[in-house]
């Protein structure tokens, strides 16, 4: 029996779909919290691809990579939420289009 009952191409395609949903979310959504979630989705798409490739080549490098990406993504989310709180502390609702004091 092969170690990969599902063809690896499916995992990679799923990860590509996740990645583009993430990109779409960053571009289209106006709520910074959703934008941060979309960025997480991009990171996790990469994780899925890493782990799928890791199984193709039957080594651990991709797993280690994915673990470190998860750690970094957690740190990024923590800092991101802190900055969102600082920026929108006085606002009634959060919308990235309201953050437009700097331009030119």
């Amino acid at each position: 029996m092969s170690p990969m009952p599902v063809d690896v191409l499916n995992y990679v395609l799923l990860s590509a779909v996740m990645f583009f949903i993430g990109v779409g979310g960053v571009i289209l959504r106006r709520n910074p919290l959703i934008v941060l979630m979309a960025i997480e989705l991009m990171f996790n798409a990469a994780n899925l691809a890493l782990i799928a490739f890791s199984r193709v080549y039957e080594n651990n490098a991709g797993h280690i990579f994915a673990f470190l990406v998860i750690t970094v993504a957690a740190a990024e989310a923590a800092i991101g939420l802190a900055i969102v709180v600082v920026v929108f502390r006085r606002a009634k609702h959060v919308d990235v289009d309201d953050v437009a004091g700097l331009h030119g």
């Binding site: 990860s15 990109v23 991009m42 990171f43 900055i83 920026v87």
Partner: peptide
């Protein structure tokens, strides 16, 4: 405001780079 813009755009760039790395 600069921090928020930097965070969102730079993290998106990291996302692109990371998927490229994968």
């Amino acid at each position: 405001e600069a921090a928020l813009k930097y965070l969102i755009l730079s993290s998106t760039a990291s996302g692109f780079m990371l998927y490229g790395m994968a």
